[in-house]
């Protein structure tokens, strides 16, 4: 059994009033200090390379989408947010997504899709804001998800850097 020894209170403390006054003086002083609130939409957060926002699809320099609709992100997605239908193209890589929907209401921004992607086609962009007036509008289709590679470059470089950790052979 643990016996907690409480501090003996002095008379002033027992009276409680002086302590009340002390407390009041503390809160009164704090009223005049600078608030730390960030006025969010006007003062947005700084975005860094580790910012993990909503997933977006990479459009390569030759204007073709990097995604081959392999479905690994769909399978990896723990929230079942992704729906992909593939189709054939004439390009060297024969397969491309005809439909690529991410239900942003389901998406939990975990980044599993980014990790699962074998083609470096989906990355967590720095886009964080998500608001609309209907549920349908928040199911993003392929056109809404496409981003030029340059827009995602910071994150792409970061992910590559992280991944090289696992690629360097261990000392053993």
């Amino acid at each position: 059994m643990v016996i907690v020894k409480r501090k003996e209170l002095s008379l002033a403390e027992k009276l409680y009033l002086p302590e009340v006054v002390r407390g009041l003086s503390v809160t009164f002083r704090k009223m005049f200090e600078k608030p730390i609130t960030r006025q969010y939409p006007e003062e947005p957060l700084e975005k860094t390379e580790v910012t993990r926002g909503q997933p977006r699809l990479v459009v390569k320099e030759d204007d073709s989408i990097a995604c081959v609709s392999c479905g690994l992100c769909e399978a990896a997605c723990p929230a079942y947010a992704i729906t992909i239908d593939g189709g054939e193209t004439d390009r060297a890589i024969e397969r491309e997504p005809k439909r690529f929907d991410i239900d942003m209401l389901r998406c939990i921004l975990c980044g599993f899709c980014e990790e699962a992607c074998p083609k470096d086609a989906i990355f967590m962009s720095d886009e964080l804001e998500l608001a609309d007036y209907s549920r349908e509008a928040l199911i993003y289709n392929i056109e809404k998800l496409k981003r030029p590679q340059a827009a995602l470059q910071q994150r792409i470089d970061y992910v590559k850097k992280i991944n090289t950790r696992w690629q360097t052979p261990s000392s053993t």
Partner: peptide, 10 residues
């Protein structure tokens, strides 16, 4: 307002 100021808020 006052509660906000006492808590460093706006």
């Amino acid at each position: 307002k006052f509660s906000a100021w006492m808590q460093y808020r706006i």
